[in-house]
Design a protein around this nucleic acid. Structure first.
Length: 889
RNA sequence: GCGCGGGUGGCGGAAUCGGUAGACGCACCGGACUUAAAAUCCGGUACCUCCGGGUGUACGGGUUCGAGUCCCGUCCCGCGCACCA
């Protein structure tokens, strides 16, 4: 073996051998347990970024580990190849999106191979290829047949200058990114998938996912947003004096949904969304109102933008009548009411809702408190008849948004909020003015995009027959690959050769739908297609039953809601069509944190902001190493340090993995990624820490080399009965403790940083072991073999070479994960922490099997206990076996 | 604004079920080797201290024999918010 670690020599050689053997090609083998390890496929943006390296290294460690544990492992890779960046690149440099995308894929595939991931490349798939997207279209048609896909209007960002729909990302401070024109909302026809029909199951089945982070399940549950409430009808005409109590005969009503029907007597106005039919009607003969509603169209459509904009409203002049008190209530138009949720109208209770409160204050609307905290004045039962408003329910404590006890609420006063909600719903129901209802926050999935670089929606518009689905035998509807978008309109609509077609139903000339599908469609089922990428006759086949569900899915936390929810939905649709058998596609999920780096920028003369890459600036640090100043290398002028942020092109703080691999090798890049932080946390880039990882590999190499210089030796085996020196026995114990910890860290905890730290500690201990006798050398061999095997999933190249050096003729790819020798773990005595009143005062050593009484005895007898108790009486002694003793005075 | 996370030495992080705070690594300091430097190896490194000890896990409170960990409140940072992927 070479004396020096030369990754640039060994890594390509090891990779060449893997390729030659097709070592990672996976076949269906029913005799072995399968392990489908999937990392989220990349968007082919041009180059790999550090987030990819992190993602795929985590996946590779788990894949290689499970291979060593005897699993039949599948780790595939592909390309999420449709999307906006390809069109942006086309606008910028005139290259067709297809060409740009395929070139990027070729380059990035090379980068992935250079990192040494154990990927089955024979299953590679690319979503912009017709053989893939054909099945998007096919499944869309199945959904259409079942009413799961349908058309309705939706609101989009409209750039009035470019006459183009803008993605949310393309709206910056309410203006179009290219034109700078104020963006408007516009309603256009779109296709939707009825994900809300699966809302109940998508929510309930979260409980079937014990392998998912609780955080992600909570986010999804909140996103689906099941809420139990009451739909209340406010009559729009004055109710008849007599006949109250009889259902019906109320005339037109304004429907609202509320989860807080208990606050009904606190309603002082009603508010409807600007798009609400009532608002539209009222605006017809009210120019000021029409202007206000028109004004609400300004700005983008994102929820964040709507929620943070100033709350504004205007009285429509219309009235609705309180179902119980018959009081006339003004109806306002308010920009904070969303048309898409509930009924697009709310009953406003300023005293008990923060948004209504702010709105009422702004416009001088009345505020009427009707709920007081239950706990106050004891909250005893007799309080229930006390109808006087509690002082705390008045001004300074408003709005009071928690539940409590009702007052000033007619027959319902004195009831608790929950009781009152039930009772009010019942009475409303009897009056025919409302009922209990379940509402969801989840909306149907709008998949139409007015863009070129996506999967065509397989529909044809015919003058005579209307919208007609493309027949299955005509699929796929091919996307022309030679378009060059220019930033205005939808390029597909300008392609007569694409648009012109004949109606499949009547044969008359017709026009193709030019909208393409949301790219989330592509990524909603690619995991299933990896199982059978070569099947041109069916979307999926029996091989899916073998591999699915994915045993381990790994990807960025930023996908916690949308991508994962859409994939779950798509799976359930495929299941209900009889295509697959699983309910949930991903059994275990690991959401990795983002990769951060320092951000430097400078204000430009024009008021813009200019970013500097970290290697373009020179930093000054204070004596504690903190960055206090920075200047650009180019001009020597100061730049601002903006702290840490996720690596991104726009902030120019990305680090190219290519440079790191070239400089230190793939193993160093992989080791750093796994060591720098636990996978779920953000990771801060640090070049010096990369060097530290590299140093460790050099030390490991040297340790094996030094050990082997004295000749080959078999690893220690307890079966030989050879007596070991106490230090050698200690090291063996540490080895097997480390093995147990590393196994647990990788498999259960998925905390690779602590696994690596434990291995480093073991190597440090190995360095301290002296002695060249055969027994000691055999322990050293055992440790080095085990370390090589434990690191093999993380740094496979160096470990391949070291393992073969340690065991000539052996094959690391066929090696099993090492076993813990339980006999090596035995201890005769244990050290316990001694506390007095919870403070650390010393340590005591007791026999390994000592019981609590014996430990207490030993603790009280120790000199530290004598000293710190100083004869004071001992109140109690807490003994935690194996850990500590606490003497309480 | 709403939902979900996070905040521990100079820095990244460790402490897995409420039980020794700071493992491991980086940086820094000192030493060895060297003509010298790099590389490498060894040692030290939370803060204060009257050297007994005391303080310390964003901030303010609470529960407990014992809190980085649990509870309440506040501040800051990150992710998501449905057309970025």
């Amino acid at each position: 073996m070479q004396a020096h670690y030369r990754p640039e020599l060994i890594e390509p050689e090891v990779q060449r051998r893997w390729q030659e053997r097709q070592a990672f090609r996976a076949g269906e083998d029913p005799t072995r347990p399968k392990y489908y390890c999937l990392s989220m496929f990349p968007y082919p943006s041009g180059r790999l970024h550090m987030g990819h390296v992190r993602n795929y290294t985590i996946g590779d460690v788990l894949a290689r580990y499970h291979r060593m544990r005897g699993y039949n492992v599948l780790q595939p890779m592909g390309w999420d190849a449709f999307g906006l960046p390809a069109e942006n690149a086309a606008i910028q440099n005139g290259v067709p999106p297809a060409r740009w995308t395929y070139d990027n894929i070729a380059y990035m595939r090379g980068q992935l191979k250079r990192l040494g991931f154990a990927i089955d490349w024979s299953r590679e798939l690319t979503t912009c290829r017709p053989e893939y997207y054909k099945w998007n279209q096919w499944l869309f048609l199945r959904m259409l047949e079942r009413g799961l896909a349908y058309q309705k209007t939706g609101v989009v960002n409209w750039d009035p200058v470019d006459q183009t729909v803008l993605a949310n990302e393309q709206v910056i401070d309410g203006r179009g990114w290219r034109t700078g024109a104020p963006v408007e909302k516009r309603e256009i026809p779109m296709y939707y998938l009825a994900i809300t029909r699966y809302a109940e199951e998508l929510l309930a089945d979260l409980d079937k996912l014990p392998g998912w982070p609780q955080q992600v399940k909570t986010m999804q549950a909140n996103w689906i947003g099941k809420s139990h409430g009451v739909e209340i009808h406010f009559p729009l005409t004055p109710p008849p004096i007599s006949g109250a109590g009889s259902a019906g005969g109320w005339g037109p009503v304004l429907k609202v949904f509320t989860t807080r029907a208990d606050t009904l007597f606190g309603v002082t106005y009603l508010a409807v969304a600007p798009e609400h039919p009532l608002a539209q009607a009222a605006a017809r003969d009210n120019p000021r109102l029409a202007a206000f509603i028109e004004d609400c169209r300004k700005g983008g459509v994102t929820e964040a933008e709507l929620a943070t904009q100033e709350k504004r409203g205007m009285d429509t002049g219309l009235k609705a009548y309180h179902p119980f008190t018959r009081e006339a209530l003004p109806i306002w138009v308010a920009n904070y009411v969303l048309m898409g949720y509930g009924e697009g109208a709310v009953m406003a209770v300023p005293a008990h809702d923060a948004r209504d409160f702010a709105f009422a204050q702004k416009y001088g609307l009345p505020i009427r408190a009707v709920i007081r905290p239950a706990g106050e004045q004891g909250g005893r039962r007799e309080e229930a008849t006390d109808l006087t408003p509690h002082p705390s329910a008045l001004s300074p404590d408003l709005p009071y948004t928690d539940k409590g006890i009702l007052f000033d609420s007619g027959d319902f006063s004195g009831r608790s909020s929950d009781d009152a909600i039930e009772a009010i719903a019942l009475v409303l129901n009897n009056l025919g003015l409302g009922e209990k209802r379940v509402t969801w926050r989840l909306r149907d999935w709008g998949i139409s995009r007015q863009r070129y670089w996506g999967c065509p929606i397989p529909l044809i518009h015919c003058e005579h027959c209307g919208t007609v689905p493309v027949p299955d035998e005509q699929l796929p509807v091919l996307l022309p690959e030679d378009c060059v978008p220019d930033g205005s309109g939808n390029p597909l609509a300008k392609r007569e050769d694409f648009v012109r077609c004949t109606c499949p139903r009547c044969g008359a000339p017709a026009r193709r739908e030019t909208d393409t599908m949301d790219t989330f469609v592509d990524s909603s089922w690619y995991y299933a297609r990896y199982c059978c990428p070569d099947n041109d006759a069916a979307m999926v086949d029996a091989r899916v039953d073998y591999w699915m569900p994915v045993d381990q899915y790994i990807g960025g936390i930023e996908h916690a809601i949308l991508h994962l929810l859409y994939s779950r939905f798509w799976s359930k649709v495929m299941r209900d069509l009889g295509l697959v058998r699983y309910d949930e596609p991903f059994a275990r999920l690991l959401t990795q944190g983002m990769v951060l780096n320092h951000i430097y920028a400078r204000r430009t003369d024009k008021g813009g902001i200019q970013y500097f890459a970290p290697d373009e600036v020179e930093v000054t640090t204070d004596d504690k190493g903190r960055i206090v100043a920075a200047r650009a290398r180019a001009d020597g002028q100061p730049v601002d340090y903006l702290g840490l942020g996720t690596m991104s092109k726009s902030k120019r703080n990305g680090v190219d993995p290519q440079a790191i691999v070239e400089r230190y090798g793939a193993d160093t890049a992989r080791l750093f990624m796994m060591f720098a932080a636990p996978p779920e946390q953000t990771l801060e880039w640090s070049e010096t820490a990369v060097e530290g990882a590299h140093r460790f590999l050099k030390r490991l190499w040297k340790a094996v080399h030094e050990h082997l210089k004295a000749g080959a030796v078999a690893a220690y085996s307890p079966a030989t009965g050879v007596e070991l020196s106490p230090p050698a026995r200690e090291l063996r114990r540490l080895l097997h403790e480390t093995l147990a910890k590393v196994t647990d860290d990788i498999e259960r905890r998925q905390q690779f940083n602590t696994a690596i730290a434990a291995i480093m500690e073991l190597m440090n201990a190995l360095g301290r072991l002296e002695g060249e006798d055969a027994a000691t050398r055999s322990v050293r061999q055992e440790v080095l073999e085990a370390v090589t095997l434990m690191l093999a999933p993380i740094t496979p190249h160096i470990c391949t070479v070291l393992y073969e050096a340690l065991r000539p003729g052996a094959d690391l790819l066929a090696a099993a994960w090492p076993q813990v020798d339980e006999t090596a773990l035995k201890r005769e005595s244990v050290e316990l922490v001694l506390q007095v009143n919870g403070k650390l005062r010393g340590h005591i050593t007791v026999p390994a099997g000592a019981d609590a009484a014996a430990i207490e005895q030993a603790a009280l007898a120790s000199p530290e206990a004598q000293r710190f108790t100083a004869g004071r009486p001992v109140k109690k002694v807490v003994v935690v076996p194996g850990r500590l003793v606490n003497i309480v005075l």
